[in-house]
Amino acid sequence: MESDLGLWAIPIAMLGGAIRVSTPFLFVSLGEVLTERSGRINLGLEGTLVFGAMSGYAIAYLSGSAWAGVLAAAFAGSLFGLLHGLICSLPRVNDIAIGIAMMLLGMGLAFFFGKPFIQPVAPDLPSIGFGWWSDIPQLEAALRVNVLFLIGAAAAVALWWMFRSTRVGLVIRVVGDSTDAARAMGLRPAVIRTLATAAGGAFAGVGGAYLSLFYPGSWSEGISSGQGLMAVALVIFARWNPIACFWAAILFGAAGALGPALQSVGVSEGYYLFYAAPYVLTLGVLIATSSPNRAMVGAPGELSITK
């Protein structure tokens, strides 16, 4: 039944890892794209992710429905985003500092309210087996795709289309590129940015629900280990393009699976080095694509880090 695949195990494990691990990266980075395109940075998404994981797990356990958990996580995430957006709408408030405060608040609240939910077992989100055509069990396991991954992929395309060819997308982009131009058009930048941050928070909350309700599939205080922060960095890596966010998330998921996969086929020396692969990759790509002469391509003009 079990077959020995030799070195083929590595690409299969990376494919599986890409599908399993990428979803939280994808949702958080999509949420951050939405927020940053409107001209704000929300560094607090790590806290939103952890709180989303906790609230999603808690509601799923209490209601018996994993989807109710996802909705609750999205709702909780949007509240965090809304709070960030409202505070940042006050004059002379720094969005990065508020983001860090929101990150600590989100994690602290999640740990506090999450205590009673570490032990119980909540229902899992369903997944669809796309590997039925294969009789290799490893491939079948790798192609067990969660519904949220598919929703995330669809959302990436939808956001890309929204920014490109809809009025809403245009409004967000105008606000993000020039506050003055937006005001001249009769838009209210603060309101639009707050709404964009709230929507971004909802995305991050869903990413958290994926962590606690599907993979790894349980709530614990160490569940995120910095994935929310990495996803914020992914947005710069992906140059504020939702489709690129999707590929970046896939890349990070696959790179994360590299370490365990190599050990499982017997390449066991230097695993600490393999675990650093995603970060080395990021550094490499950022250095390769950077330029001292021009601003970052695709960066919204009103973003506080690029101004």
Binding site: A9, A13, G16, R20, Q138, P216, S218, G256, S264
Partner: peptide
Amino acid sequence: SLAVKEAEATNALADA
């Protein structure tokens, strides 16, 4: 304590 990496490691063992 690294939840995602532990899950990946477990999957890699099952695959092996």
